[in-house]
Design a protein around this nucleic acid. Sequence first.
DNA 1: TTTAAATAATAGTATTACTACCTTAAATAA
DNA 2: TTATTTAAGGTAGTAATACTATTATTTAAA
Lengths: 225, 225
Amino acid sequence: MKLQLQIKMNEALYLRDPQSSDLGKNILRHSVQIIYKIGFESFTFKKLAEDIGTTEAGIYRYFENKHKLLVYLTAWYWSWLEFQIRFHTNNIKDPTVKLKRVIDLLAKALEDDEQTSSINEKLLHQIIIAEGSKAYLTKQVSKDNKQQFFKPYKDLCALIGNIILECSPNYKYPKSLASTIIEMAHFQNFFMNNLPSLTDFGQTKEESEIILFLNDLVFANLYKS
Amino acid sequence: MKLQLQIKMNEALYLRDPQSSDLGKNILRHSVQIIYKIGFESFTFKKLAEDIGTTEAGIYRYFENKHKLLVYLTAWYWSWLEFQIRFHTNNIKDPTVKLKRVIDLLAKALEDDEQTSSINEKLLHQIIIAEGSKAYLTKQVSKDNKQQFFKPYKDLCALIGNIILECSPNYKYPKSLASTIIEMAHFQNFFMNNLPSLTDFGQTKEESEIILFLNDLVFANLYKS
DNA sequence: TTTAAATAATAGTATTACTACCTTAAATAA
DNA sequence: TTATTTAAGGTAGTAATACTATTATTTAAA
């Protein structure tokens, strides 16, 4: 049995569904590779078209502009990660164990094991670290938010917030702590690799150290005397 | 007595020192206003030139490109904030009180009281919240780092890290906790105002709540049983 | 078989991000 | 004083980017 996990995306994110055709899947696959390689600023639809072997106008039939494509990729990532978290914490009763598992999944780059789709999750994880915040750090954030573009991120945050409340029902800031964990899992990784003196992991550059830091940070708060 | 605080900037950030001429000061003042108004993505040297009443080429004689200008503004902000912190925590003996003061200064928008310079600190604070991370979230981050562009940010982080160690000499992650406080002071503010369901302050939208959250987060860690 | 609908390629335009060159004004030397 | 250098800013470009409108081709339905 080989099943394909298909993530249902917000239709306002695209003009034509990229998961519905070969060209569309190529756009997703190649854009992940190019953004990973040259960064979002230098990434253009022309370069993407040349890489795929189609024309610029061809890409524009799928995505209005490169910002929408980035929002699509990040939304896809958060949806996929929420699924991973639900899958890997399924049947775990102890909320502490569950929350530890969540931190692991946030901070570790999961293998691109199953050929889920046209998207390489390992590269996408790196893109989210370096470019993810650019999806919402814009002047259109409220307009985009009204169109529910960030729903997957908010759902993930709510899920983690609820696990936090299971651990400590009286904790006052479950959602802020959840968004802090998510952001810091990524920012500490970026800092560790690029601006190491902003972290305490500059020597080893080990993901496992970020996990220890986040565990320490979170559980000191939830189980304080 | 009226003294002018002049911040000495890294010379590699500019082609001609913007603090040395009227046009230069206008570039700083107007770029802060325009970026605040329309966002960094839509900001162009042409719009800036029109606003000032000069030409595009005139701006290019001061800054190589708009990325360098953003890095300049963020570096200026971190230097200015480090000065504010040193000034306002001067003579405070108790490190806990000191750290609380730091969190206040990070999360609160200080008034543009003294006419320090051509820069409106209140607007710049908002710019740092929404655009600050774009200064380092690029492919050139390592090259920029080698040129010491992020030294003011690293210095601030080291300063806060040391106060953390004064509070709790055995704490293992002073630098990572420092960068977490800095980033979260800004991100929680952005989320509160633009994506409120990622925080617990969506109702009131009060800076003071962010301060409470950060205090809770930090001191649970430093003084845990 | 004809017609319509979907898909894709061609060839543009406006804006952006620069660059090379030119003019003017101030500063200094003869 | 006048000639000459130098600094500062302006004019007028170009190449690349971000799209768009139009035309062509394929596919599918009537």
